[in-house]
């Protein structure tokens, strides 16, 4: 027994990649053991897609050439990848239970604590896109851009999902309050609905049209729709990429500042 105990253990920092992989694997394990927390993420987008197309397809398509199912698929994917899926609530629990302190006491790179969670988010986001894509395929939506387009479509949506998750991480680290984190979804509602979600931007009027013009999700939707129905329309795609990047930069800065505050030993 003592012989085993006499191994020379050399404690050191395990390296950034190893830290991130250890943290993200733990986060994914918790998801698998607590599937209820992600089931709404699978159902809500499918529900919206079915209801929106069912209710509005004939009405919107009546006047023109729009394929309303292709028009709604991006809405469904954005719903799938946004908000309630982030691991921010796990982070809140960790801070409250003291487990976060325990992690901080190891030589782990501080940034890996956040990036590890985000890697888990991305894995989850990709899993959540699958049913949406299958449903889209089943009802006849085809990508003008082919398989590469599907990949770009999911990647862009995941990029947005990550940007949005940054806000919940910032709130989680700043407040350590589950209620505050859940309320970050309140930010998502106007961002999602004050967009050309139901009808094209050109058809929108009044204050909603004005707000939609300044909403990054409008351009994300534009890119995603263009990837499906038009083809590789580079400037449409860039517009989406750039607007999402603005969100990502803001939210990641907030999350990093909150992380810094949380580990500051004050």
């Amino acid at each position: 027994m003592t012989a085993i105990g006499l191994t020379q253990v050399q404690a050191r920092n395990g390296g950034f990649a190893s830290d991130v992989s250890a943290i993200s694997r733990r986060a994914l394990r918790s998801v698998l053991r607590d599937p209820e927390s992600v089931i709404p993420g699978f159902i809500i987008p499918l529900f919206f897609f079915t209801v929106n197309t069912g209710a509005l397809q004939n009405f919107v398509e009546a006047g023109g050439t729009l394929d309303y199912k292709a028009f709604q698929l991006p809405v469904a994917i954005i719903m799938a990848v946004t908000g309630p899926l982030s691991r921010a609530l796990t982070l809140v629990e960790d801070v409250r239970s003291g487990y976060f302190d325990r992690l901080v006491m190891t030589p782990v790179r501080r940034l890996a604590l956040l990036i590890g969670m985000m890697v888990a988010d991305i894995a989850l986001v990709i899993a959540l896109s699958v049913p949406v894509l299958i449903l889209g395929y089943a009802v006849g939506v085809r990508f003008e851009t082919g398989v590469a387009g599907v990949v770009a479509f999911v990647a862009l949506a995941a990029y947005w999902g990550l940007g949005f998750a940054g806000f919940s991480y910032a709130i989680a680290l700043k407040t350590a309050s589950a209620a505050a984190v859940s309320s970050s979804f309140m930010v998502f509602l106007p961002m999602m609905f004050l967009t050309p979600m139901f009808i094209p931007l050109e058809a929108m009027t009044g204050w909603m049209a004005t707000v939609a013009q300044y909403n990054p999700v409008t351009y994300l939707l534009g890119s995603l729709r263009s990837i499906i129905t038009v083809g590789w329309e580079i400037d449409e795609i860039l517009k989406g990429l750039l607007s999402v990047s603005v969100v990502v930069i803001v939210s990641m800065t907030m999350a990093l500042l909150a992380l810094k505050g949380r580990v500051s030993r004050q």
Binding site: V9, Q10, A11, R12, S18, A22, R29, D94, Y99, P107
Partner: peptide, 21 residues
């Protein structure tokens, strides 16, 4: 300060990896 959703072994393994073992 533990994590109810992991097993004891998983928690020990995670901790070991953060210490670069």
């Amino acid at each position: 300060a533990l994590d109810d959703k992991q097993t004891g072994r998983e928690l020990l393994q995670l901790q070991s990896r953060l210490y670069g073992l």
